[in-house]
Simulated assay, not measured.
Amino acid sequence: MQVTRFDLLEPALQGRLNSNTVARLDGVETFAEVLVALDELRAAHAPARILCTLDDVDQCAYTSGHASLDDRLWFDTDDSDDPATRHRADNARTAHIAAALDAGSIAWEALPGSRVGGEQDAAALVELNREPDQALDDVVLVQRVPVARDDLALAAVPNGYFTGDWDTFQNHAVVRRMAAHGYRHIGTGAELLAFDRESAPTPEAARAVVADLVHLYGASGSACWAELTALLAERRLLIIGYGEDFAEQLA
């Protein structure tokens, strides 16, 4: 994997989300190598948060741009060619979106019924968490996010554009709920969200995580949930789908 780091005030380069893109990872094959890069970038840019892209980087950037046009998130910025001016504008936009998410928090209890995939989604979650490398594009962009809390890193790549997706505010509710289980949000893709934690959860803690996923996805009688519980108890990563068709993308 090749890691290209960017200076924050470097003029815009092709393949960047904005001036807060601090690295581009090319030839990505495994989540393990991405996690190493994220740890290095996190240390280099502390106390800012770090967030990476996941599946389909181009589609992720496209839908994120449209998702940010939501009236609740919209922030008009100056399209100056001056790098310093553009960087200030990118930071102001991120701060505005983070504040909007904080002020417009959705209660966890309001989320049931927002997914309709049932058994298909449950099976896709098992597949994703058994083989998390498939959640990554071969190009990953890494964002520096100047926010005060891990849950607000979502503001760097707001997403959830299509009608059947969870929108950005629903995604934020999920991120906050997973934080209660010890998971930090580390990535957003065109269809997926990724989380890590310091160590794998205990079997009891994994069962609590899966109970919340049943709350989101339904199919409470599926045998997939027991399989997912066993998988999560063995690993630090958690991958879930927020996009309407995330399960179909794995077919």
Rank of each mutant, 00 (worst) to 15 (best):
Ala155Val: 09
Phe162Cys: 05
Arg236Lys: 14
Gln14Ala: 14
Glu119Met: 07
Arg130Gln: 13
Leu192Lys: 00
Glu10Met: 14
Arg86Glu: 13
Glu191Tyr: 12
Val147Met: 00
Leu8His: 13
Thr85Tyr: 03
Thr168Asp: 05
Leu193Gly: 02
Leu125Lys: 00
Asp82Val: 12
Asp165Thr: 06
Ala32Gly: 09
Val22Gly: 01
Arg130Pro: 09
Leu9Ile: 10
Ser114Cys: 13
Leu213Arg: 00
Gln14Lys: 08
Phe195Leu: 08
His87Gly: 08
Asp90Met: 06
Leu216His: 01
Asp151Ser: 14
Pro47Asn: 04
Glu40Arg: 15
Pro146Arg: 05
Cys60Thr: 15
Arg176Asp: 06
Val209Asn: 00
Leu13Asn: 13
Leu101Arg: 01
Ala67Leu: 04
Ala122Phe: 00
Ser80Thr: 05
Leu73Ile: 08
Ala173Glu: 03
Phe31Tyr: 10
Ala219Thr: 13
Asn129Asp: 06
Gln14Pro: 10
Cys52Asp: 05
Ala247Ser: 15
Glu248Cys: 12
Gly118Ser: 01
Thr188Cys: 10
Ala61Arg: 11
Val147Lys: 00
Leu193Tyr: 01
Ala44Trp: 07
Glu131Gly: 04
Arg207Val: 12
His66Cys: 12
Ala155His: 02
Leu8Pro: 11
Arg130Lys: 11
Ala211Gly: 11
Gln2Trp: 12
Glu131Ala: 13
Leu54Ile: 05
Tyr62Gly: 11
Ala148Pro: 11
Leu216Cys: 04
